[in-house]
Design a protein around this nucleic acid. Structure first.
Length: 300
DNA sequence: AAATCAGACAACCGCATTCCG
DNA sequence: TCGGAATGCGGTTGTCTGATT
């Protein structure tokens, strides 16, 4: 089945947008709203492909676009999200107000990606044992990712089918007020905090006041909150062998944090999340901090 | 001053997904 | 349910600009 081109490319302008074109597009979208991109150029009098108009609007002309350098906080958030989501730039951008997927993608490719590669080249000089373990990890990751992604680095990617929503809640036991440090990171305290996700697969053990635990929109620590946890995501997570993550190597994370590699009983009543063979004793809250241990090398 | 190079980022392209009649 | 249109997404390319030789 053939596919008709999005537009006939004859007689259309290409390349950089002119000020006049920007003005026309901006005025038109302000007047008629987004959408109907295919017909927009004709109606607005632009000699551009509809796709091109959409891209120009979304990536450059939108009034809520935040221009300027990526801040340190934003960079850390990008790294964390990329670790979780892989090259799902639109999802990552969804957690960074005012930033576009294209901008984040470019930033990753030109800045962070290099750091990752540098880090990889350094780690390749480690002992043979570590080297072998990395190879194992890479083969595991390559089977779950595309080739382009594989060349960037050894991030531990959960292949989600997540979409933005507000249904997933970050629930913490009622006895545990959230404590944040100067970087707005959750300070882990005992007893363990847990996260429960609205899903038929998840059991709620204690009735809690959800509103008490909703974090602020811009808090970098709550980046998991707005992702809809679809069954696909849950199953991906359940099937994920967390022992393969670099974070669990050397006993580093597992020994000092809340993640329990063993298949014994749950850590506590507060942390029980779901029943699954590969996630016993783990919880989503654990996933965030474990990533942090992998970020140390990125610090200046 | 001119040539070359590298970094940054806007824009394009093709495929995937969603929507709708 | 199906097919085509519309839209979204991620990879790649092109171009501009500043730094270096």
């Amino acid at each position: 089945m053939g596919r008709s081109p999005c537009c006939s490319k004859e007689g259309l302008n290409r390349g950089a947008w002119t000020v006049m074109e920007d003005k026309i597009l901006t005025e038109y979208v302000k007047l008629h709203g987004e959408g109907k991109w295919r017909n927009l150029p004709k109606r607005a009098g632009l000699k551009r492909c509809g796709k091109s108009c959409r891209l120009r609007w979304l990536n450059y002309l939108r009034p809520d676009i935040k221009r300027g350098n990526i801040t340190r906080d934003e960079e850390e958030l990008i790294i964390r999200l990329h670790k979780l989501l892989g090259n799902r730039w639109s999802l990552i951008a969804g957690r960074l107000p005012g930033r576009t997927d294209n901008e984040i993608k470019n930033y990753w490719n030109t800045n962070i990606g290099k750091k990752v590669q540098d880090h990889l080249s350094q780690t390749s000089k480690r002992s043979n044992q570590v080297h072998r373990q990395e190879k194992q990890n890479q083969s595991v990751e390559k089977s779950a990712r595309g080739p382009a992604e594989a060349k960037i680095g050894s991030s531990c990617v959960v292949r989600t089918k997540a979409t933005k929503c507000t249904k997933a809640v970050n629930v913490i036991t009622s006895e545990q007020p959230i404590q944040l440090d100067q970087h707005n990171q959750i300070i882990e305290t005992k007893p363990e905090v847990g996260v429960e996700v609205q899903s038929s697969m998840v059991h709620h053990h204690d009735p809690v006041d959800f509103s008490q635990f909703m974090l602020g929109e811009n808090n970098p620590s709550n980046f998991m909150m707005d992702f809809e946890m679809e069954e696909n995501f849950i199953s991906d997570l359940l099937n994920m062998d967390f022992s393969q993550l670099p974070c669990f190597e050397d006993g580093g994370y597992s020994s000092s944090n809340t993640c329990d590699k063993g298949h014994s009983s749950p850590i506590s009543d507060h942390t029980h999340l779901v029943s699954g063979d590969t996630l016993h004793g783990s919880n989503f809250q654990s996933v965030g901090p474990l990533i942090e241990s992998e970020l140390d090398w990125l610090c200046d």
